[in-house]
Structures are given as C-alpha cells and as structure tokens.
C-alpha cells in the first residue's frame, strides 16, 4: 500500500518533469483560451447582457470557464497524452519491468490528472480573483476541489476513449461529438434553468454541469455546503464509476 503510493508519486514526478520542460507551451492554451473567451464574451457581448441571474455576464462566465480548464487539461492528457505515451513512446513497456505494476500506472495517471486539473482551475481562479470576480477570497483555497472533481471523471472518459480508439485521429471525433458539446451545453455560457427539460436532463447526466455548479457556489459564496454536498457528491460518484471502468479497460491493454 505504502509502496504503491510511493510509486504513484514517482510516476507523477516523472510526468511533472516532462511537463515542466515545456511549461509555457503546455500551460498557455488551457489558460489563455478561457481568458480570451471571457474578454470577447464577457466584455464584448456583456455590453448587451447587463443582467444575467442578477450579475454581469463576466461574473456569470468566470466560474464555469475556470472549471472548464480541468475538463480540457484532463481530457487531452488522458487521450492524446496517454495514448502517445502508451503506443508511440512505449514507456509503459519498460516501466512495467520495474516494481511498477499496472495499477500504479493507472492510479498514478489519476493523481497526475487531479493535480493538473486542480492547478489549472486555481490558476484561472486566482487570475479572476484579481479582477474581483470571486466574492469571498477565503473560499479560494477550495477551488482546487472543483478542479479535481472535474478532472477525474473527464480524465477517466479520456482513458476510456484511449482504450477504444484504433488510431490517434479518432480522438478528434470524440472531441467534436462529446467534449465540445459538453463544454458548450453545460451551463457555462447561459443558465440551464430556462433550457428545454430534455437538454437539462442530458446536461445534468454528464459531469461538467455539476462542476459548474460547484465552481459557482465557491465563486459566489452561495449555498456552498449544499452544492458541495449534492453536486460534489454526484461528481464523486461519477468519478468512482468512470475511473473504475477506465481502470478495467486500460489494464486489459497493458497486461494480457
């Protein structure tokens, strides 16, 4: 048990060392896309939308965009990233000859995804806080929780995709028909409340909408305990189910 943890930490260290080499290139897209979005939509479109659920459009967008970074960073890491490490770089082949086993490879991946999700989400939240978009600064330390709760289920989805694709190009299909709609229809850009019921149900059947709720509660200091309990609880459940399934799929590839 302790040894498993130690090995997972070493694996995470390895990922961090590689990631650090191109830190700027790795961090920029995840961080700057939401910043451009909040500038173009919040500031630009916000000129016309002055009141949305009682807030400025910028304030409305900020929490959802912050948590969306966890979706993208974890999905890309566990799809393209993991796939490349597994099939092109072949690094697990050699790792598995060391005391590292398949479960450490996968658990290590979950830890790494969580750290990245938490990190990205926090970076943006700190940036937004500078512009007064976070109501109670003492809630800022809780933001990483939202990042982890989104990174785990979405990263697991990426791993599941990795276990099904026949080649690396097929991730584009997953992105176009699953990840992009998830991003656009999870209530980041408009309140889900006045959407048709069917769309609402679909949105809440998927993880991101719950992450947006958690992030909003923390940014706006509204019903924090209730939202963390309900939506956070749902996300924990999703994480457990999806991570377990991803584990089952990936271990079948790594060992015979």
């Amino acid at each position: 048990m302790l040894e498993t943890l130690r090995l997972c930490v070493q694996l995470t260290k390895r990922n961090w060392i590689v990631y650090r080499k191109d830190l700027i290139a790795n961090v920029s897209p995840t961080i700057f896309e939401p910043i451009f979005l909040i500038l173009s939509l919040g500031v630009g479109l916000g000129y016309f939308i002055t009141d949305i659920d009682g807030r400025s459009y910028t304030a409305f967008l900020a929490p959802g965009l912050a948590v969306s970074t966890a979706l993208f960073s974890s999905f890309f890491e566990s799809s393209y990233g993991f796939y490349i490490r597994m099939t092109f770089e072949n690094i697990f082949k050699a790792m598995l000859t060391t005391p590292i086993g398949v479960h450490e490879v996968i658990l290590g991946e979950y830890i790494w995804l969580s750290i990245k999700g938490a990190m990205m989400c926090s970076l943006l939240a700190i940036g937004f806080a500078c512009f007064g978009l976070i109501k109670s600064l003492w809630l800022l330390p809780l933001i990483p929780i939202a990042g982890v709760l989104i990174a785990l289920p979405c990263g697991a989805l990426g791993l599941i995709a990795t276990s099904y694709v026949k080649n690396i190009n097929q991730f584009q299909t997953v992105y176009a028909f699953f990840i992009a709609p998830l991003f656009f229809f999870s209530g980041i850009f408009f309140p889900l409340a006045q959407m048709p019921n069917s769309l609402k149900y679909i949105a809440y059947a998927l993880p991101l909408a719950h992450g947006v709720e958690v992030s909003r509660a923390l940014f706006w200091n509204e019903n924090v305990l209730y939202v963390l309990g309900v939506h956070g609880g749902i996300l924990i459940l999703y994480s457990a189910i999806l991570c377990a399934f991803a584990y089952y799929r990936i271990q079948k590839i790594l060992q015979n």
Binding site: Q10, K13, R14, V18, A94, M95, T97, T98
Partner: peptide, 29 residues
Amino acid sequence: KQRMGVVTQDNALDDSLTVIENMMIYASF
C-alpha cells in the same frame, strides 16, 4: 521485479528526457 532487470526488445526509453533524467527516474522506481 525488485530482483530482476530486463533489457526489453524495444528500447522504450523516455524520449522526452535526457539520459541522466531517464536513469534517475528509473532508479527512483
């Protein structure tokens, strides 16, 4: 595996790292 070393058929070296970084990581494993 603690008592066994394997020269795998594929090199499977970590291309993103230098020689010493590769070995340091494996030593930690």
